[in-house]
Design a protein around this nucleic acid. Structure first.
Lengths: 213, 213
DNA sequence: GTCTATAAATGGATAGAC
DNA sequence: GTCTATCCATTTATAGAC
């Protein structure tokens, strides 16, 4: 996969056929990955001819990148909005964000899977692109939120803020990835209840697993 | 993908050619996934003819499952050994395990990626198989370790033990998946130093991110 | 924009000699 | 066990009519 399409590109309004193709492709690419899905299959799912796909998209890779691009911008925009509209104590804001983030992952499962695939198997230059164009804004906003909490004494000041961000996200993403497997392991009732997982994980992260003296 | 091969299967010693094929296939499947890799490619990488692969393995899926099976048993065995040889205070044992686990993920990057792919895109019945046959033992051992810590007062008793296990693993797996991307985000010096990440993350998980009053 | 028909290449898998 | 040669289905992509 080559570069992520530049955001300053002229975005034409897609025709009805094109939208049907994009929607069908998103479902298929997300659930089985780029290589396992054929253009034939996409055409059938979209209810158009295979040649019609090549009329709207120059080749398979271009179609995939278009699917990926819209997934990225949708998800990213949604989370950014959430982060901006926040108010109140930092801890509560973090709690709301984390809950919203996990719910958003589960609700937009397809986009999330697409993006994660890129994170994991993309090249090094692609990792940089993703960091800057997709995750950069959200990450920095979380960072400043946490620094604000530290400045006000709501959070410990002797911890790297980025580490807190990472642990918050790690829990959510692990839950998203693994809850199907977790359910089959012992004593994991929370695996069926994302909100409950969020509550317990946040409580744990706030107070630690050591008894308070 | 059908069932994981039964562990009680008669394991014949593989010939030299078969081992070369398995090794080449592991590299390719791990880095690009099942569908993106062709038998032609594997043959070239292994330095044998394509027909020879079909002599040793009945078809592509069988080859893939064999690769996966050895990856699972190797990784799982290594971690089980680590957990069994442990002694000392529970917190220190957890710390050693977590460090060992992350190092093992990074060292055996290929096996880890193969197994993770199965966790993420496998069917529901496959998720159950993985939970029981691959992760079950390690998970339960960690569980009893944490319960021991709670019983002795080393750890808070009012937290679900499985949740602690999940958060420990989540940090490691997130680091493993995302450190390439993390490196390009601001203030993430720990992204280049797994041991440092482990230290800081464990400290945070032990004491929490709230100031101790 | 949409289609049918077809090209050109590659995919997994087999036959049969050595 | 290993090879060359081949089969056949499927793949991406194009040509050209409507």
């Amino acid at each position: 996969m080559s570069n992520l399409p530049s955001p300053a590109r002229p975005v034409l309004v897609p025709s009805e056929g094109a939208r049907a193709i994009l929607a069908a492709a998103e479902v298929l690419f997300a659930s089985r990955g780029y290589d396992a899905v054929s253009m034939n299959e996409i055409a059938q799912a979209a209810g158009v001819s295979k040649a019609n796909i090549f009329h709207h998209f120059s080749n398979k890779k271009a179609l995939y990148l278009e699917v990926l691009r819209t997934a990225c911008s949708n998800d990213s925009a949604e989370l950014l909005r959430e982060l901006e509209q926040q108010s109140g104590p930092v801890i509560e804001r973090l709690q709301r964000f984390v809950a919203h983030h996990l719910a958003s992952l589960l609700r937009n499962e397809r986009s999330a899977r697409l993006i994660q695939r890129e994170v994991r198997q993309g090249s090094d230059s692609r990792a940089k692109e993703l960091a800057q164009q997709v995750f950069g804004d959200n990450f920095m906003r979380l960072l400043t939120l946490i620094k604000a909490g530290q400045a006000q004494g709501e959070l410990r000041a002797d911890v790297e803020p980025a580490l807190i961000v990472v642990l918050l996200l790690a829990g959510n993403i692990f839950f998203f990835d693994a809850h199907r497997v977790l359910r089959h392991l012992p004593e994991t009732s929370f695996a069926n209840d994302p909100a409950d997982f969020n509550r317990q994980a946040m409580e744990l992260l706030l107070h630690g697993i050591k008894p308070q003296n």
